[in-house]
């Protein structure tokens, strides 16, 4: 068996020629048309995708609208609920406030009435005490009273530092009840001079509000001793709520008026 080299070469050439011809007439045109079709299909696909995207967009917008409506409804309902709630609360609050006001008013009224009644009671007691004391004093002679008063005043002045009473006080007003006779006035002046000195001018007045007692009124110092003060003290003890609005300052005391 021998291989025909001419045939081999010819077949090889034939094959090369066939490959070139088929490339020219088959593969190239088919590849070109396939590429064209692919481009067309891709264009169509892109268009379809575009359309689908648009539809999707529409759908989303529609769903968005629905959701918005639902949210709106929800919000309105919540608003209405809150409104109702606030109104209810307001009504309750106003009712409660009214009730509180009424209660407070009533309580205050009660307080007031009680206080008034207590005051009235205190006043009555004071008035009774005044009446009683005046009646008692009426039976006692004024001289006895004033003598006793002078003794006690002098005792009180003795507790004061003597420098305070001297020199500074040029005028001394002495208010008493019952009023002093001329002899008694001289007796009082001589006794008081031992405390305040001779230079001091001493005036005598009668003050009914003292009920029974005496008050030494220096310009800047008051030394008092009276039933009125005792009564006021008693009234303050009886009615702690009445405060200082009473008849006078409490007890025998010295008030430093004009501080230097």
């Amino acid at each position: 068996m021998h291989i025909d080299l001419w045939g081999l070469a010819l077949q090889a050439i034939n094959f090369a020629v066939l490959a070139w011809l088929l490339q020219r007439f088959l593969y190239h045109p088919i590849a070109r048309v396939v590429t064209q079709r692919r481009a067309l299909v891709e264009t169509d696909l892109a268009a379809a995708k575009e359309a689908r995207n648009a539809a999707e967009e529409n759908r989303r917008a529609y769903e968005h609208g629905i959701a918005e409506i639902a949210a709106e409804r929800e919000r309105m309902m919540a608003d209405a609920r809150a409104h109702i709630e606030s109104e209810r609360r307001q009504v309750i609050e106003s009712a409660e406030a009214q009730a509180a006001v009424v209660m407070a008013t009533q309580r205050r009224q009660c307080e007031e009435e009680r206080r008034l009644a207590a005051e009235e009671l205190g006043d009555q007691a004071v008035a009774l005490a005044l009446a009683l004391s005046q009646k008692l004093l009426g039976q006692v002679s004024g001289e006895v009273v004033t003598t006793a008063l002078l003794e006690r005043i002098c005792g009180q002045l003795a507790t004061e530092p003597p420098e305070r009473l001297r020199e500074r006080e040029p005028v001394l007003q002495v208010a008493t009840m019952p009023g002093l006779g001329l002899a008694e006035q001289n007796q009082w002046r001589s006794r008081l001079a031992t405390f305040v000195g001779e230079a001091v001018e001493i005036l005598f007045v009668t003050d009914e509000s003292l009920i029974a007692g005496a008050e030494l009124r220096f310009p800047s110092l008051v030394v008092s001793l009276s039933w009125r003060d005792c009564l006021a003290d008693a009234q303050a003890a009886l009615m702690p709520g009445a405060g200082a609005g009473g008849v006078g300052s409490a007890g025998p005391k010295a008030t430093d008026g004009a501080t230097p």
């Binding site: 025909d4 010819l10 077949q11 066939l18 011809l21 007439f25 088959l26 088919i30």
Partner: peptide
Amino acid sequence: PIGLEVVTTWVIMAVLVGIAWFGTRRLSA
């Protein structure tokens, strides 16, 4: 020397190229 198989190959080439030419005459995408 031109053998029989070479002649047959020519014919086959002609047929193939003819089919290809005929089929790709009017291509449409």
